[in-house]
Design a binder for these strands. Structure first.
Length: 505
RNA sequence: GCGCCUCUAGCUCAAUUGGCAGAGCAUCGGACUCUUAAUCCGCAGGUUCUGGGUUCGAGUCCCAGGGGGCGUACCA
């Protein structure tokens, strides 16, 4: 390997003409940053090595212009016949081919920053033609299925995923700076818990055990708080067996965190500071425009109780002591179906979700929820029948759900049993009793504040996208027709054949 | 799940009331020493999503199925 990155030894060149490694010394964005102010016709004497895909080609006969795109952006390649090795081979490159180039940084007579091709090597052939160089891919389905193409031809897509990565990085740093420890808890749950949702099921052959993919990491994280990890968080992929939409993917990412000795007021402060910090760091401002509307994320966010908002937006002056008949009447007036076992708390929630939640834009913390619909939250210190729970509504969407955690094992058992009763009555999203979690609580959970933030929705906010599939690299889709499907992976024997060669090294 | 819309060349899109399936880009061949989605000439490229039906004749109309989008429901 020579200094300029072009392999010169046959040892490192494959028989197919493709080298085994390559070493770029510069990037497209780096060149523009370093040399963007040069005048037309400039020659720098600086030799750099770039790698990327050839995304545009302009063949002038004895002079060839190409546009090389790498992970950072695009830069022009300038290739005169008389100075370019194997000029015919170079001009024969296809759109989409990967190529490594070494040459001097220059500016053309027309003022375009370029690399004059000195040495070059093809790093991969694009056997399939790339999409229209101007229109790209318009079919969203193709974009999601062939993200490896989409990332090259749709700038906004690539930018959104770069921002997503940076957002997670900034978030982790911010939490670690505050003493939070990142942990990993099981994805396989023998008992689904921590949220109200339908789980996916799977099966472990050797243990002959039915398992659920987690719908939330909550109960495991609180076990860790019992275990003395005072501040923990997990960036958790969770799975819910529900429909897909512009706001829902069956697997999505939640940030959950638990802070010992904190209550939900502390968590509210944490959320608004974290989100404002992310916007400030990644976008340089807390004043966003989303879906054509303004959004001010600056601290502090408004705090209003659910009952206050019901009065404000729907004119409904109701509370848990409002006669049930009255609540039922209000629901029926609004075409909300009422079940026999629905208590006043459930009915108030239904009225809120129907009349008030769609009106909210935020950011606003909706504070204090009925105990009846909150099986893991601690009783409100002042309001009987209510719990210390809040949701953050931002850009009209639920961004987070948080509460002062329920710490009393006896109370928790009663809540679980109430959920079981609901399950018996036909609610297949209701929780089941988790005896081990109760045992953990019996060892003592200190006062704790907990939080779950939908990361995908947060990233949508930061990237200004309105479809969750635009922030998930490979969203859940039906398998493509006509590509062939693998043999049924289930029931594949007992695995003792040891035929797998994956996860090597 | 339900409702509405949609599917034509590798990509982006045309095709009159039902009347010979087309263009640009990409590919292939040719011209061109400062292009910027380069330009120009030429070749090739099709199960019009699938299967039925109506018709002398279907990309177009009807029925069923499939893929996708949007809305709605469940939900974060």
């Amino acid at each position: 390997m020579s200094d300029d990155g072009i392999p010169e030894s046959s040892e490192s060149m494959g028989t197919d003409g493709i080298p085994y490694r390559f070493e770029p010394t510069a990037t497209a964005a780096g060149l523009h940053a370093a040399h963007g102010d040069l005048e037309a016709g400039a020659e720098t004497g600086i030799v750099v090595t770039l790698a990327g895909r050839l995304m545009l080609r302009r063949d002038q006969g004895k002079l060839f212009f190409g546009v090389l795109q790498d992970a950072t952006g695009r830069v022009q390649l300038f290739a005169p016949e008389k100075s370019t090795p194997d000029f015919a081979g170079f001009t024969g490159l296809h759109l989409g081919d990967w190529v490594g180039v070494t040459g001097e940084v220059i500016v053309t007579r027309r003022g375009e920053l370029s690399v004059r091709v000195g040495e070059w090597v093809r790093l991969a052939a694009a056997r399939r033609p790339f999409p229209d160089k101007w229109h790209g891919i318009s079919d969203t389905d193709t974009r999601y299925r062939q993200r490896y193409v989409d990332l090259w031809v749709t700038d906004e897509a690539r930018e959104a995923f770069v921002l997503r990565s940076r957002a997670l990085s900034v978030m982790r740093r911010w939490l670690e700076d505050r003493g939070f420890l990142e942990v990993e808890t099981p994805v396989f749950h023998p008992i689904p818990g921590g949220a109200l949702a339908r789980p996916f099921t799977t099966h472990h052959n050797a243990l002959d055990l039915d398992l659920y993919l987690r719908i939330a990491p909550e109960l495991y994280l609180k076990r860790l708080t019992v275990g003395g990890m005072e501040r923990v968080f997990e960036v958790a992929r969770v799975f819910r067996n529900e429909g897909v939409s512009t706001r829902h993917n069956p697997e999505f990412t939640m940030l959950e965190l638990y802070q010992a000795y904190a209550d939900y007021h502390d968590i509210m402060a944490l959320v608004e500071e974290l989100v404002a910090h992310l916007a400030e760091t990644l976008l340089g401002t807390t004043q966003l425009e989303y879906d054509g509307r303004q959004l001010d994320l600056s601290v502090p966010w408004r705090r209003a109780t659910l009952t206050e908002l019901l009065a404000e937006h729907a004119g409904l002056e109701i509370d848990l002591d409002t006669p049930r008949d009255e609540l039922v009447r209000l629901c029926e007036e609004r075409d909300i179906p009422v079940k026999d076992h629905d208590g006043p708390g459930k009915l108030i929630m239904e009225l809120y979700e129907k009349t008030t939640e769609p009106e909210l834009w935020g950011p606003v913390f909706v504070v204090d929820y009925p105990k009846e619909v909150s099986p893991l939250s601690r009783d409100h210190r002042d309001r009987p029948g209510w719990v210390e729970r809040f949701e953050g509504i931002v850009a009209g969407r639920e961004l987070c759900n948080a509460f002062t955690e329920l710490v009393d094992p006896d109370d928790q058992r009663e809540r679980f049993e109430a959920q079981e009763a609901g399950r018996a009555a036909g609610d297949d999203e209701a929780m089941v009793v988790d005896e081990d979690y109760l045992r953990a609580l019996e060892y003592g959970l200190p006062p704790t504040g907990g939080l779950g933030i939908g990361i995908d929705r947060l990233v949508m906010l930061l990237t200004g996208t309105t479809a969750i599939r635009d922030v998930i690299l490979f969203p859940t889709l039906r398998p493509e027709q006509g590509l062939g499907t693998p043999a049924d992976p289930g029931d594949g024997g007992d695995g003792e054949g040891d035929a797998d060669e994956g996860a090597g090294s």
